[in-house]
C-alpha cells in the first residue's frame, strides 16, 4: 500500500548497509518483498481450498508431512502458484525505479531502464523505441501465453475468497 517511490530512499539505505548495492541480489530481494503480501494472500486462499482430508489420507498411506505436501498439496495448488508467479514476474520485469536507483553498472541494467535511455539520445528515434517496446513485450507475452489458462483459475479462487 506504500507507493514504491516513497520507500526507495530508506530502502536504498538498507541495501547499502547490507553491502549489496548494484547486485542482482538487491533487485531480487526488493521485488520479492513487494510481491510477498499479495502472493501470501492469494496462496493462502488456494491452500485453504484444498481439503485437509487429502493430505491426511496421504499421511495414512505412510507418507511423511513433507512428502504429503510435495506430492499432494503443491500439485493441487499449482494454479495459484502460477498466478502468483505471473504477478511477480510482471512487477519485477516492468519495474523502473528500483532498477534505476539500485543498479549502477551497464551489465546489470534492466530493460525498462534501457528503453528510458533511448529517450535521452540527441534524436529520439521513435522507430527504435517502438521496436524496443515490442522486443521487451515479447518475452512477457510468451510467458503469459504459456500459463494463462492457469491464471484464470488462479486469480479467481484467490479473489473469491477475499
Amino acid at each position: 500500500m506504500f507507493a514504491p517511490v516513497m520507500i526507495i530512499i530508506p530502502f536504498y539505505i538498507l541495501v547499502k548497509q547490507l553491502g549489496i548495492v548494484n547486485t542482482r541480489l538487491a533487485l531480487v530481494l526488493s521485488y520479492t518483498t513487494f510481491c510477498l503480501p499479495f502472493c501470501l494472500w492469494l496462496l493462502r486462499a488456494f491452500f485453504e481450498s484444498i481439503p485437509l482430508e487429502l493430505e491426511e489420507a496421504a499421511m495414512v498411506d505412510g507418507a511423511g508431512r513433507a512428502r504429503a505436501v510435495w506430492h499432494v498439496v503443491l500439485p493441487l495448488a499449482l494454479p495459484g502458484l502460477i498466478a502468483a508467479a505471473i504477478f511477480t514476474f510482471i512487477l519485477a520485469y516492468n519495474d523502473f525505479l528500483f532498477a534505476l536507483v539500485l543498479i549502477t553498472s551497464e551489465e546489470l541494467k534492466t530493460l525498462p531502464v534501457g528503453v528510458n535511455d533511448l529517450f535521452n539520445a540527441t534524436i529520439v528515434d521513435w522507430g527504435m523505441i517502438m521496436a524496443a517496446g515490442v522486443m521487451i513485450t515479447l518475452p512477457a507475452v510468451l510467458f503469459f501465453a504459456g500459463v494463462q489458462r492457469y491464471l484464470v483459475q488462479g486469480w479467481g479462487a484467490g479473489g473469491v475468497k477475499g
Partner: peptide, 25 residues
C-alpha cells in the same frame, strides 16, 4: 475464445513505460 482471451490480456503484460509511450504517440 482462447485467442481473444490472450489478446484482451495483452495490455496488462506490457511494461508501463511502453504502454504510456504508445498512447502518447
Amino acid at each position: 475464445r482462447t485467442l481473444l482471451r490472450g489478446v484482451v490480456l495483452f495490455p496488462y503484460v506490457i511494461p508501463t513505460i511502453v504502454a504510456v509511450m504508445l498512447w502518447k504517440w
